[in-house]
């Protein structure tokens, strides 16, 4: 069977899987971005209780493997009477896991804002909330976006894991086609190429665009 006829026969199935992968990617990215910012802010809080909660959360989710968390959410939570759909548990597990990594990036970004900005905000007698919201946070984006972009590419790769908890994504479809046809090189090769195309030609350019946008917003032009 030539590769072309393989694509004609199974291409649409793989494309359907790709749509699910992209859906997981988008939902998990939104969730992880929110969690990163919330826990990153908690991590630099002066209140030791809030800071402690954030530290425990971050250490816990960075210390255990994503796959363990994923299976835990899908197979163990029903024991506690909380049954999540496969898609939901996949998105939640990935979001929480990458949120822990992202929170550290946000913390680094907040600490990297020049001291003069903090002092300026003090001098103008801005309230702590206003200082964060109007002075510090707008300036962290050019700092955090490059490492966050790397993390988002990692997230795209991690979405392949949701196939193991029966989400019908690209990986799942590739496995399924492999089980039917035993054309392993074709189906897994195609899946690899699709992931590569998503990352190289869609995700990375989009993240670069965001970086340029963030730099322009605070008046730092980027080439």
């Amino acid at each position: 069977m030539s590769y072309f006829s393989f694509l004609v026969e199974h291409g649409s199935t793989l494309l359907l899987g790709t749509v699910t992968t992209v859906k997981v990617l988008i939902c998990a990215t939104i969730l992880y971005a929110l969690i990163s910012i919330i826990f990153g802010l908690m991590r630099v809080s002066n209140n030791s209780v809030i800071q402690g909660i954030a530290t425990v959360y971050i250490e816990f989710f960075r210390g255990t493997s994503l796959m363990v968390q994923l299976f835990w959410f899908y197979y163990v939570l029903p024991f506690f009477g909380l049954s999540l759909e496969a898609f939901t548990s996949g998105v939640v597990a990935i979001g929480l896991n990458f949120g822990a990594y992202g929170a550290e990036i946000v913390r680094g970004g907040i600490l990297a804002v020049p001291k003069g900005q903090w002092e300026g905000a003090y001098a103008l007698n801005l309230s702590p909330a206003k200082r964060m919201r109007r002075i510090i946070i707008p300036q962290i984006f050019p700092i955090i976006l490059p490492p966050a972009a790397n993390l988002t590419v990692e997230l795209l790769k991690a979405t392949a894991l949701v196939a193991l908890v029966t989400v019908v994504d690209l990986t799942f479809e590739a496995k399924q086609i492999n089980a039917i046809t035993w054309l392993s090189a074709q189906c897994f090769g195609t899946a690899l190429i699709i992931y590569y195309i998503i990352s190289r030609f869609f995700l990375v350019p989009f993240l670069r665009w965001l970086e340029i946008l963030a730099a322009r917003k605070i008046g730092k032009e980027k080439i």
């Binding site: 790769k157 590739a174 492999n178």
Partner: peptide, 22 residues
């Protein structure tokens, strides 16, 4: 390097494991 870096380890595992016997 770029290709290996931007594709999931899981599918790479399947690829190596299943394509070899072919």
């Amino acid at each position: 390097v770029e290709f290996i870096r931007s594709t999931p380890l899981l599918i790479q595992l399947f690829f190596v494991y299943f394509v070899g016997p072919q």
